[in-house]
C-alpha cells in the first residue's frame, strides 16, 4: 500500500509538472498570437502595487508585471527547449560514436567531457556572453556547449550496453555496415535515458538564462524573467512585487522540468517499471 502510494505520488508530481509545462506552452503561443498587446508599453501608472487593474502591479516605467511574465515565458521556453535540443543532438552523436567505436575516440571524448564537468559553467558562460555580446542565439549556443557532455556520457554508457546485445550481432550477420547498424539499430534503442537527461537540461538552461539576464547579460529590449529580477533588485524596498513574481515563475518552471525529468527517468527505467 505504501509503495503504491509512493508511486502514485511520484506519478502525480510528474503529471502536474507535465500539465504545467503544457500550460506554459499554451501561454507562450497565446501571447504570440494575441493581437494589439504590447508588453513594452509604458504608462504613467508606474510602481503601482498589485490591484484589480494590475494583478501583479507595474514596474518603474508603468509596464504591467503580469504581461511581462506572460511574454517572458517565450524567452524561457525558447532558450530551454533549443538549448536542450542542441545539446541532445550533439551529445547523442558524439556519445554514440564514442561508445560504439571505442578506442582513442572514446578516450578523447571522455577527457573533453571531463573538462566541461569541472569548469564552473556559469562563470564561463557569463564571460563568453560578456565578451561576445548578448543575444538569445548566443546564450543557446553557450548552454549547448556546456551541457552536451552530460548527454554524451549517458548515450555512451547506453550504447556500450546495447551494442553487445544479440540483435545487433544478428543484424551484423546480415552484412549490414557498421555505421548503418549504429544509426538504425543502436542509437534508436539507446535513446531512453537521454530523454530524461534532456528534460533536466531544459531546467538547467532556463535557470542559466535567467541567471545571465539577472546579471544584465541580455539585451535590454527583450523582456525575460531574469531581466525583470535584474531591475527589481533596485526596488526591493518600495516595490517588492517586481522581484517576487518573476522569481517565483522561474522557480516553479525549473522545478516543473526537474520533476518531469525525474518522472520520465523513472518511467523509462525498467527497474522501477510496474
Amino acid at each position: 500500500m505504501r509503495r503504491f502510494l509512493d508511486r502514485f505520488l511520484a506519478y502525480r508530481a510528474g503529471m502536474t509538472a507535465g500539465l504545467y509545462v503544457l500550460f506554459l506552452i499554451a501561454v507562450a503561443i497565446a501571447a504570440a498570437l494575441w493581437p494589439g498587446i504590447d508588453p513594452h508599453e509604458i504608462s504613467d501608472r508606474a510602481m503601482v502595487a498589485p490591484s484589480m487593474a494590475h494583478l501583479l502591479g507595474t514596474d518603474e516605467l508603468g509596464r504591467d508585471v503580469l504581461l511581462g511574465l506572460i511574454y517572458g515565458v517565450r524567452v524561457s521556453l525558447t532558450v530551454g527547449f533549443s538549448a536542450a535540443l542542441a545539446a541532445t543532438v550533439i551529445g547523442v552523436l558524439i556519445g554514440a560514436a564514442a561508445g560504439f567505436y571505442g578506442g582513442w575516440l572514446d578516450l578523447v571524448v571522455m577527457r573533453i567531457s571531463e573538462v566541461f564537468q569541472v569548469v564552473p559553467g556559469f562563470i564561463m558562460a557569463a564571460v563568453i556572453i560578456a565578451l561576445s555580446g548578448p543575444g538569445l542565439s548566443r546564450v543557446v549556443m553557450v548552454i549547448a556547449l556546456l551541457a552536451w557532455p552530460q548527454i554524451a556520457r549517458l548515450m555512451r554508457g547506453e550504447v556500450m550496453r546495447v551494442k553487445q546485445l544479440e540483435f545487433v550481432d544478428a543484424v551484423r550477420c546480415l552484412g549490414v555496415r557498421e555505421w548503418v547498424i549504429l544509426g538504425t539499430e543502436v542509437i534508436p534503442n539507446s535513446l531512453a535515458p537521454v530523454l530524461a537527461g534532456a528534460t533536466l537540461i531544459v531546467a538547467q538552461a532556463i535557470l542559466l538564462e535567467a541567471s545571465l539576464s539577472f546579471l544584465g547579460l541580455s539585451s535590454a529590449d527583450i523582456i525575460s524573467w531574469g531581466r525583470m529580477l535584474n531591475s527589481g533588485q533596485r526596488f526591493l524596498f518600495n516595490a517588492p512585487w517586481l522581484s517576487i513574481f518573476p522569481g517565483f515563475a522561474i522557480f516553479i518552471t525549473v522545478l516543473a522540468f526537474n520533476l518531469l525529468g525525474d518522472a520520465v527517468g523513472s518511467a523509462l527505467n525498467p527497474k522501477t517499471q510496474r
Binding site: 531546467a203 535557470l207 541567471s211 529580477l229 522581484s243 522569481g247 522561474i250 522557480f251 522545478l255 526537474n258
Partner: peptide, 17 residues
C-alpha cells in the same frame, strides 16, 4: 528538490524583503 530548482539570487531577494 526545491534546493535544486530555486534561483539562488531570487531566494536572496526574498530573504531581504
Amino acid at each position: 528538490l526545491i534546493g535544486f530548482s530555486v534561483p539562488i539570487f531570487w531566494l536572496g531577494q526574498i530573504l531581504i524583503i
